[in-house]
Design a binder for these strands. Structure first.
Lengths: 222, 222
DNA sequence: GTCTATAATGAGATAGAC
DNA sequence: GTCTATCTCATTATAGAC
């Protein structure tokens, strides 16, 4: 978390162990939830002793927060960079393209990271937990809300006539759909009876079609 | 669960206690998750001894399943009744109205039940857990999938040209949005900076606008 | 940093009296 | 059905040797 006491740089081996512990914890927290994943299981998964997990992670709740924080910061940076990049073009884009551009800037950085990396896919399940469990409201407020606020501010400037609640609602629904896609893609295939998991690109395209059209509908109706 | 051994009818007091235990468990399971809610906490919340929770609920996992089952069946019945009621009209409705009618049949029964009853609102959080946690996949398959399949079948008949995956995807996204609305409505208000919680009707209307437009977009694109 | 060992607590479940 | 009391086990966390 915060490096208050200055100490000398940890060894290479230590850093590897530390990362193995963090990755194992991320996987188990994502799979079983904060309460369902025990320190012992995490230690076993990482191939270390339980004491070592406490050494690197501290108290369990702090450990969980540190794992969330680890990926939250780089993700927020990528998102905000994209937002900055597209912002100048928004006034000239028609509504549908403007909405799509903003949603792209929010979602693509995550999907890109998640594509090849299992850790990032696990992270999505962590985010879903943090977003829905009141216990982690402070964590969400610290790591997720500021980014969301910036995206909403950009949308508000592009669509000044739309009520802020409509924009916020569209944003929450969109995030719900993204998390639904990542955490329950197996369910889509199961319900469609389409055998193996579907083409990745088709699902992503569908997500953008759905969310963009939904957003536009919210903007126009009110 | 199943009443194998026939016994004589339980007393009125017993039924009240049993219901208090179930309601307390539902609340705590919804709030803290299956692992986060302990039998002891549930007993304390219900004002009984821990042994009594085991007596009425059995093993913890079975207890959780029983709580899910308790409301799943009446909800499925209401949904299917609505679906049966609207089905004859679908062929004559334009696409947008047809989609909206089907979504209404799925969502309104739940929203109606949840409006006045805290238990039903807690139930939504249980459903979210069951839907996203692989551990409860069998539970979801037993209690949720059959209803979803029937709704998808009706949509398939009304939109035979649409690929089944698109319909399944739209359905999953819609359910994600419903759960997002119920479990994170506080977040909408927080992000919109709109002070107190928003008008209920406005949120519901927004949900239908968003989901219907998204669904139509999925149908048309492919 | 890493290990062994253990403390301290809380968990789920049951036996048996009433 | 309900209670007291208890069993057994897993949990988080730390102390202290190396």
């Amino acid at each position: 978390m915060d490096e208050t006491k200055r100490k000398r740089a940890p060894s290479k081996r230590s850093l590897q162990t530390r990362q193995r512990i963090f990755d194992s914890a991320e996987r188990l927290f994502a799979e079983r939830g904060f309460d369902g994943a025990s320190i012992r299981d995490i230690a076993a998964e990482a191939g270390v002793q339980t004491a070592l997990v406490n050494h690197h992670g501290g108290a369990k709740a702090d450990f969980f927060a540190a794992i969330v924080a680890r990926r939250a910061e780089p993700l927020a940076q990528k998102r905000l960079a994209e937002l900055t990049r597209i912002r100048p073009d928004l006034p000239d884009l028609p509504p549908r393209d403007a909405v799509l551009a903003v949603l792209n800037a929010f979602i693509d950085p995550f999907l890109d990271l998640a594509r090849g990396d299992e850790g990032w896919r696990n992270y999505a399940r962590l985010v879903a937990q943090v977003s829905s469990d009141q216990r982690w409201a402070a964590l969400a407020a610290q790591y997720f809300d500021p980014t969301a606020q910036q995206f909403l501010a950009v949308l508000t400037r592009r669509f000044p006539a739309a009520p802020p609640e409509a924009l916020a609602q569209g944003f929450v629904f969109t995030i719900s759909a993204v998390l639904g896609l990542v955490t329950s893609r197996w369910r889509i295939s199961a319900l469609a009876d389409t055998g193996p998991t579907q083409e990745d690109q088709a699902l992503t395209d569908g997500l953008y079609d759905f969310a963009t059209a939904g957003f536009i509908a919210l903007l126009e109706q009110k």
